[in-house]
Nucleic acid binder design. Structure first.
Lengths: 154, 154
DNA sequence: ATATAATAAAGGTCAAAGATAGTCAAAATA
DNA sequence: TATTTTGACTATCTTTGACCTTTATTATAT
């Protein structure tokens, strides 16, 4: 028996195909269509449309609320993708971050100013948290920012 | 399904475009035009034409009363300093951050891509910490990034 | 004519109700 | 055991309406 989550995944992917990699839908509507709990939609999004898999989710609550799924334009040997999926991991130090950011600047992927913004924002001095948390926070933010760069390129 | 508040927002913005950044209107008239409660106009003004978004509202009650919406045009460096030294403070929400960042983008202080990097990096979803810490972390990072922008320009 | 009181004509505030989406952990299933 | 499904509870955003405040105009008294 095919799992419902997989069916929903396929459904969303077929919608994405017909909409140029960007799609907006309503959680409750979709849940009703598949006769499942609304939170199952969140489960599908979290497990099948994660950053690691090349998707980015935005949403809004309240009247007229929605969920937007953006399919990132993935080039298999994209260096940014490697950073996001393999290099950065769960936690990263300030020095490693600086090295990575300087590197993508030198490659011409980001500007001097973008590099400066990211480096100062993710410095130890800026993230005033216990060291163990700091590395995690930094990794999450850095990965998210690289996604923004990936997205802005196409 | 489209939010009425967004429609009213767009309407006001199109009026502003044709009137050089300053506009006077009557609350009840507008409410009647959109068939909504007059207080919804206040809601739109408060959420879409806030200071953070670069607008200033004046009004007057009684006979001949009006609401005036002024699109602010500020000195870039002064505004950045104001944000860093007064506006942001110890903690700031995701929505306020988005408003501010969108505003400085519209003013030409940062690029689209820089705005996207900052907004995605400082989203609730990115900083996965208890809500109280999140606001503090965000405020510190945002201020640091604005400093980088201030330094990199001029 | 002048001061004052009543009325009308705006706009403001706030909280409740309505509309979505998110989280988390227990229960079910593979 | 790991993954999936469900549901109770939470968070956020929008819409509405009852009640409040301010300003202008008109009526009244002196």
């Amino acid at each position: 028996m095919a799992r419902l989550s997989d069916i929903i995944e396929d459904f969303i992917k077929s919608l994405l195909k017909h909409s140029e990699g960007e799609l907006q839908l309503q959680r409750n509507e979709l849940a009703e269509y598949f006769e499942c709990a609304p939170s199952q939609i969140n489960y599908v999004l979290a497990t099948r449309f994660s950053l690691d898999r090349g998707y980015y989710i935005e949403s809004r609550r309240g009247g007229g609320g929605f969920i937007r799924i953006v399919q990132l334009d993935l080039d298999k040997d994209d260096y940014l993708l490697y950073l996001i999926n393999s290099r950065i991991g769960k936690s990263i130090s300030e020095q490693e971050t600086k090295d990575i950011v300087t590197n993508i600047m030198e490659k011409g992927i980001i500007s001097d100013r973008e590099a400066a913004i990211i480096k100062i924002g993710l410095a130890d001095k800026t993230i005033l948290m216990p060291a163990n948390l700091r590395g995690t926070i930094r990794a999450n933010i850095l990965k998210a920012m690289l996604v923004a760069i990936l997205r802005a390129r196409s």
